[in-house]
Write a protein that binds this DNA or RNA. Sequence first.
RNA 1: GUGGUUGUAGCUCAACCGGAUAGAGCACCUGGCUGUGGCCCAGGUUGUUGCGGGUUCGACUCCCGUCAACCACC
Length: 382
Amino acid sequence: MDSFKIIAKDKTTKARVGLLTTKSKTIKTPLFLPVATLGVVKTLAYEELKYIGVDAFISNTYHLYFRPGEEILKQFGGLHKFINWDGVIFTDSGGFQVYSLRELIPQGVNEEGVEFKSHIDGTLHFFSPEKVIELQNIIDSDVAVCLDECVEYPVEYEKAKRSVELTTLWAKRCKDKFNQIMNKFDSKNLQLLFGIIQGSVYKDLRKKSLQDIVDIGFDGYALGGISVGEPKELLQEITSFVSQYLPEDKPRYVMGVGEVEDVWFCVEQGFDIMDCVLPTRNGRNGQALTSFGKINIKNSKFANDEEKLDPECDCFVCKDYSRALIHHYFKSGELLALRLLSYHNVYFMMKLFKKIQQSIMEGNFFSSKEKFLKKFYSQQNI
RNA sequence: GUGGUUGUAGCUCAACCGGAUAGAGCACCUGGCUGUGGCCCAGGUUGUUGCGGGUUCGACUCCCGUCAACCACC
């Protein structure tokens, strides 16, 4: 059974609307995944996620491995049951932590896997491709991804090349282990497995990586190794380059992208799924997304501002809380401040993706994009 | 009333034997953050060194006076 079905295509761009069928649910793409590293979108209750209309989020294998740990997850029968959430769960493999926590990898990375020093207590732990698949099976996510090696930017060609070779090698082992485990399940309860493409900013490496990964064959393809500090032009160059070689009939996931401008761009290039920490992390630090651009609610100019966060938003925060009040909560260190902006920003992203889906269905993706971004950069009403 | 201690940025404190543009943390004001530790990073504003005299080439620093806070004793 095909897990992905395209139901609409934009005529002038590569944007498309699809249905992704997972064992939990069928959900519509383009899809934005808020990040729930430890199984929770920081500060938000599951009831709130449901109310906002969050269909799916992404959790992290590495972090869940340390807390709550395999045993608790096994006891409860996976993350869905542990957190009582019937939406779709993606899991990241820990490959990104090879990059983000690289100072905790004293031995470096080899063919067998990665030896991590726990960021919590410094103890040594070993992740192999097989282990990561097992863990994601224990977590019982709907969509798992292969272990990959994400390298920093900028990176030397030779190092990027080795990471591509390693990522391919690991992808094969992930796929083998995955098939072995999935044999025990009936077809309705199959997890999906996505492969990850590396290659940094080198086009020949990107092409090699995606050919290798597509040859192995996965339920979807993720573009990794971007959003690691490279300039926006390179992000755009790589995403548009890779997208032209990806199979059309499989979901395409660009990992770590979530700035408003980048989101429109990646959808335009034919990507279906993206995830990003920005709406929540920046929300916790005072940045709010509004129809008229980003604002930092901590700025003193909002101290007496009676206007709502985003005059065009209909979330409860924008109905009931003035900018001045949220400013006050932030300056006072009140926890509610973090929640209000997290809620609003996630709401903003969900509404944005609904708008994107709708514009593709109605055949006006490009003009919608232009209109949206023009307003977003106008800084009116701010 | 007498004796003592202390007064330096909004706050807590540095500043050698008298030496150059009086510094730091926090706070405040901005900016940054792209497969998450609420963190962190990068900049920026702020001083009549309680006040007034004096000595000196030069005073936060030494001297005199004065004000304030605190402590002890009457």
